[in-house]
Every structure is written in structure tokens, then in C-alpha cells.
């Protein structure tokens, strides 16, 4: 019933420039009917959180392939929580070792997508798990 269009912020925190995944997902999300804001590479968690609030996004998708996800992902989640934006869904992707997952979920990352996830599964996950409030 909702007229709501899902808004997604795709961000690449950290210093790595492997943005192939992020770029492909940005297009895929557009084609799925979402409004997508992509930050490009090399953003700090502080910038990402600030943009997420200003843009009133429903989802923040983080991609990191540098190995620094254990610091960067929780930091974004924490900054959003500090601002009272608990309702923004934070998801992550990249080369995330199995053993890091629990810690990331604990820190408030709702889902981790690892290489091999299909585009459809991503869109489906968002459609099933993200319900923008009126």
C-alpha cells in the first residue's frame, strides 16, 4: 500500500578502490526501482553516517575489500545508532571471513553478502527486510 520508494546509500569506506561490486549493485538497485546514492571510494564512517541521515535512506550498503571491515562497518553502525537512526538497515559486502561475521552482526550489521551472492538475492533481501515507514 505504501507509495514509498526505497532509498539506498551505497558506500565504500576505507582506502581500497575495488568498486566493481559497488558499481554493479548500484545499477542493479536502480533497475530494481530503488533510488540509489553512491558515494564512490574512500569515504570515512563519519561521512557515510552524515550522508545517510541527510538523505533519509532506508539502507546503507557498505562494501570493503581491504580487510579493514572489522573497524569500518561497526563504526558506521555505531555512528548511526548514536544519532538515533537505529531504523536504518546497515548491510555489508566484500571479502568477509566467516569468523568475523558474528562480531559484525553483533555490532548491528543486519546482513553480510559475500562474493557469489546473486543480484536478485540482494534485491529480494531488501524487498523482504526493508519496509520504509510511513
Amino acid at each position: 500500500m505504501s507509495n514509498r520508494k526505497i532509498r539506498v546509500l551505497l558506500a565504500k569506506p576505507g582506502l581500497d578502490g575495488h568498486d566493481r561490486g559497488a558499481r554493479v549493485i548500484a545499477r542493479c538497485f536502480r533497475d530494481a526501482g530503488f533510488e540509489v546514492i553512491y558515494t564512490g571510494c574512500h569515504q570515512t564512517p563519519e561521512m557515510i553516517a552524515a550522508v545517510a541521515l541527510q538523505e533519509d535512506v532506508d539502507v546503507v550498503g557498505l562494501s570493503c575489500l581491504s580487510g579493514a571491515h572489522n573497524y569500518l562497518f561497526p563504526q558506521v553502525a555505531k555512528l548511526l545508532q548514536d544519532k538515533g537512526a537505529n531504523d536504518i538497515t546497515v548491510i555489508g559486502g566484500g571479502i568477509i571471513p566467516e569468523k568475523d561475521m558474528a562480531g559484525l552482526y553483533e555490532a548491528g550489521i543486519k546482513e553480510i553478502f559475500t562474493p557469489g551472492a546473486t543480484l536478485d538475492s540482494l534485491v529480494e533481501w531488501i524487498n523482504n527486510n526493508v519496509n520504509p515507514k510511513e
Binding site: 538497485f29 536502480r30 526501482g33 540509489v36 546514492i37 558515494t39 564512490g40 561521512m47 552524515a50 550522508v51
Partner: peptide, 16 residues
């Protein structure tokens, strides 16, 4: 698709 890539913002990120 009704979706959009909102690309202006990326050039203004330093003010975030």
C-alpha cells in the same frame, strides 16, 4: 524501472 542513480551528491561529499 522507476529507480534512480542520484549522482550529484558524490561531488559534494566533502561537506558531509
Amino acid at each position: 524501472s522507476g529507480g534512480a542513480l542520484l549522482g550529484d551528491r558524490i561531488r559534494m561529499l566533502r561537506h558531509a
